[in-house]
Structures are given as structure tokens and as C-alpha cells.
Write a protein that binds this DNA or RNA. Structure first.
Lengths: 158, 158
DNA sequence: GGTTGACTTAGAGTTAACTCTAGATTCTAT
DNA sequence: ATAGAATCTAGAGTTAACTCTAAGTCAACC
């Protein structure tokens, strides 16, 4: 069974332009061509494509993905290097997810800030008296609610 | 207390160039200037800067962050719009984190794939007999190990 | 046999988000 | 008082990752 570039693009939900660009950048050395020079993807090629898509999602730059594919094409002498590459990007991804969790926590506190302002009809309930500046105690109040078992996601819900 | 662009850049670990670029894009309308035209950041400005950094981390494009700041400068009539904006990006972030968890799961399965190949000294232990194509049963085997209580993170560790 | 649509390449164009340069001004420290 | 560092603006340059165009080839259908 083989697939045209259009069929693969459809399956992966990316454009044929992008697939050709990846090929140009050396990400698809494993793809065969027919007599007319057209790309013919094999079933096994999806194992590579899956990895490429995964690394893209993980935020790995195209050039580095190309390095990994090079290792794959070289054979068993690069097994350790391939393992190390994946382990490195696993760790980067874990760190990124932890960072995003902090970002999410912050978004939820700001949601609560606007929820309470909305309920009061004005943001000024959060200001220090006689100023336009936010009272630091407001954040402390939110933190107290969370510490008392409040769910940050629920606290901000309207 | 007020701060120069260099001091703010230092605190936020971003370059003064980037801060000026954000200003040019309308993200910093709240920043005062001294008589010589130099930016003077106030303590309260860090409340805005925190939000800008947070939205950046969440992957919100600079232009959209500018829209949000515009809402902030307009006053209490935009409280609902600001809440909705944050709620929308909270949901996007939750979706992205779920996606990244799948990406992480995939990376860990591939790590296990290379760990077992390394232990065997060759990737060919994963191939269908007489081919260079990966046996689909290999992934199924990994899934079985996970279903039997294996920790995907541990299974791939060397 | 002719038309339509998918494919090919090389190379140009686009977009976002910086990042830097040049030339002028201003602040800080001796 | 002056040297050196930091700041200002306008605008040019950079980078990554596409995205498209042009001109041509190939395959399928009526």
C-alpha cells in the first residue's frame, strides 16, 4: 500500500506545501518516488511521520528534527544518540508543562480578580483607597481562599 | 518608586529592545515618561507587565495582548470582555496542556522503544521478520506493560 | 484526444516576533 | 566638567516556518 503526498497531508492534517518543505529540509529521506518522480509514502513511513509530528508538537525546531532523522537513517550505531535526543526533549517538555501550569494558575487568579470586580460592578474595589493601583492584599486574599481548599478553577467561574 | 527600561528588562529577563517593541505595538500605554522623554515604570505597572508575560507564555499573539490592554485602559465597561478574554485563553491553555501530555506519552513510548533496542544491540528486534518495517505488535507490547501498572516514565529509563 | 486535477521544482513572498543600527540626547559618577 | 553608560526614535535586518507562484509533467476520465 502506498500514498500520495495529498493523501498523507490529509491524514496528518498538514498541507502538501509543508510536507514538501519538510522534505527540502531533510526530514523525509525515507520517502520513495515512482517513475515519474512523484513521492510514494509507505505504511512504514508513518512511523517516521508520527515522530516528526510529535517532535514538532514538543517544540523541537525543524533542523533538530532533521538531525534526529539523520541518526535514524544511519543505523544501529546511533541508538544511544537517538535515546539521548528523546530523553533530552522529554525533560524539556516536562519543564515546559510545569511552566504552563504556573501560567494557568496565574490566568485563574486574574479570572477571579475580574469575576469579583464584575460582581462589584467596578475594578476599583481592588484598588488602594484614593488610587488606581491594585492593593497587593487582593492577591493575598485569593491565595488564602486557595489555601483554605478552594479550587482555583472553580473560584474564577461565573 | 520608579524604574528605567533597563531595570525592568533585568527584572523580567527580557531585553530592552523587546520592551520597546511591545510599547510600539501598544502593549505599554500605561508607562509614564520623564521630562527627557524616558520611560519611567511605576510599581503598579508590574501588574500589567505580569499579565503581558503570562499571556505571552500562554501563547497569545502580541496583537491580541494589545487588545486586552486596550480593554484594561478603557475602564469598567470592559470588565466582562476582559473576563471572557481570560476565560477563552484559559480554555485554550488547558487544551494545549492536554495535547502536550499526549506528546509526552508518545515521547516516552519511543524512549522505551530505543531502550529495548539498545539492550538488544540492534533496532531490528522491533522489525517484522525479513523487513526494515516496525512490527505494530511492539507498540501493543508497550501498551500492555503500561496497562499492567507500568509507569511510562520509568519504563523508558536506562 | 482533450480537459481537469494532482503532482513536480525552484524560488519568491509572508508573518510574527524580535533584534539591531545609527545618530542624537541625557544621566551618572568622578 | 567631562567621560562613559543608558536611553531615545525610526527604520532596517534577521530568523523560523511556512505558504504560495510559475511553469511544467503526469494520470484519469469522457
Amino acid at each position: 500500500m502506498s500514498y500520495s503526498i495529498g493523501q498523507v497531508a490529509e491524514k496528518l492534517s498538514i498541507s502538501p506545501y509543508t510536507l514538501r518543505y519538510y522534505d527540502k529540509e531533510g526530514l523525509l529521506p525515507f520517502v520513495d518516488r515512482n517513475d515519474a518522480g512523484r513521492r510514494r509514502f509507505k505504511d512504514n513511513d508513518f512511523n517516521f511521520l508520527e515522530v516528526i509530528v510529535c517532535l514538532k508538537e514538543a517544540g523541537v525546531p525543524v533542523k533538530q528534527i532533521g538531525n534526529f532523522i539523520d541518526l535514524c537513517m544511519t543505523g544501529d550505531t546511533t541508538l544511544q544518540a537517538r535515546y539521548d535526543f528523546l530523553a533530552k526533549h522529554e525533560q524539556k517538555l516536562v519543564a515546559k508543562m510545569a511552566q504552563l501550569q504556573h501560567t494557568l494558575d496565574f490566568l485563574r487568579w486574574k479570572k477571579w480578580y475580574y469575576k469579583t470586580a464584575l460582581q462589584a460592578g467596578t475594578e476599583s474595589i481592588h484598588y488602594l483607597p484614593g488610587t488606581n493601583h491594585v492593593d497587593p492584599a487582593v492577591h493575598a486574599e485569593f491565595e488564602r481562599l486557595v489555601a483554605d481548599g478552594g479550587n482555583p478553577e472553580e473560584l474564577g467561574k461565573i
